[in-house]
């Protein structure tokens, strides 16, 4: 049962775990999950969740184009290129 939930989780996280990793990681993950559950004794239902460390003023960017100067280094960083395209094996 626990194994199943962690297998689904690994799938969602795009991680392929070896048998050894599964054993090691699931054990540690369960240990942490139990630690998390210790929060259940905190009475917090009336509190707003904190989503940002600090609440600051509105921050926006003017709608202006500033091209990145070094576009070709971004292409060079990829594993495989076809002309100016990033290339990966077929999806279908």
């Amino acid at each position: 049962m626990e194994q199943d939930e962690w297998a689904v989780t690994a799938e969602l996280a795009a991680l392929k775990l070896s048998e050894g990793e599964k054993k090691r990681l699931v054990k540690q993950a369960e240990q942490m999950r139990k630690l998390y559950l210790s929060m259940s004794s905190a009475v917090v239902d009336n509190l707003e969740p904190t989503t940002h460390a600090s609440v600051v003023k509105n921050r926006v960017r003017k709608d202006e184009v500033k091209p990145f100067k070094d576009v070709d280094t971004l292409l060079d960083a990829s594993n495989e290129l076809d002309d100016r395209f990033f290339l990966i094996p077929n999806v279908l």
Binding site: F86, L87, I88, P89, N90, V91
Partner: peptide, 10 residues
């Protein structure tokens, strides 16, 4: 963009 056995990304 799907080519034969590869996918091109833009």
């Amino acid at each position: 963009i799907h080519a034969n056995d590869a996918t091109l990304l833009d």
